[in-house]
Amino acid sequence: MFDYIISYYNYWMYAGLMMIGFYGMMAKRNLIKKIIGMNVFQSSIIFFYISSSVKRGGVTVPIIKHVAGAHGSHGVDVMQYANPLPHVLMLTAIVVMVATLGVALAVAILIYRRYHTLEEDEIILCMRKG
């Protein structure tokens, strides 16, 4: 049972973070709070991908230290290094996350200029009045 929990708890961690972000996106009425919830949500997905690149048993960062022979598998022991492919994909995802944050904040500033509030229910009241 303890072994089972050790092998699977990272998935439960990312599920919990995703639930926190999702609740923030749906239940909070302030627009900045919704954007913060979106940030937590995206971070949880990046956490899931990065945790799928971990290998147990003395792995190091994916930087090749020394190459002994230049033939065959080029002298690299694959089991010593972490999986580099999720790192590359998540580098792209982090930068896209900040771009999404910038556009969302720009739209929030526009909404504030027009309705002079950031609360969702007051914005809906203003829209119904005119």
């Binding site: 994916p62 930087i63 090749i64 190459v67 080029h74 694959v78 790192h87 590359v88 580098l91």
Partner: peptide, 14 residues
């Protein structure tokens, strides 16, 4: 991991 050093001469695989 195996061919990065031979193909691109970069130690950092990422």
């Amino acid at each position: 991991l195996e061919h990065s050093m031979h193909d691109t001469a970069t130690p950092n695989v990422v």
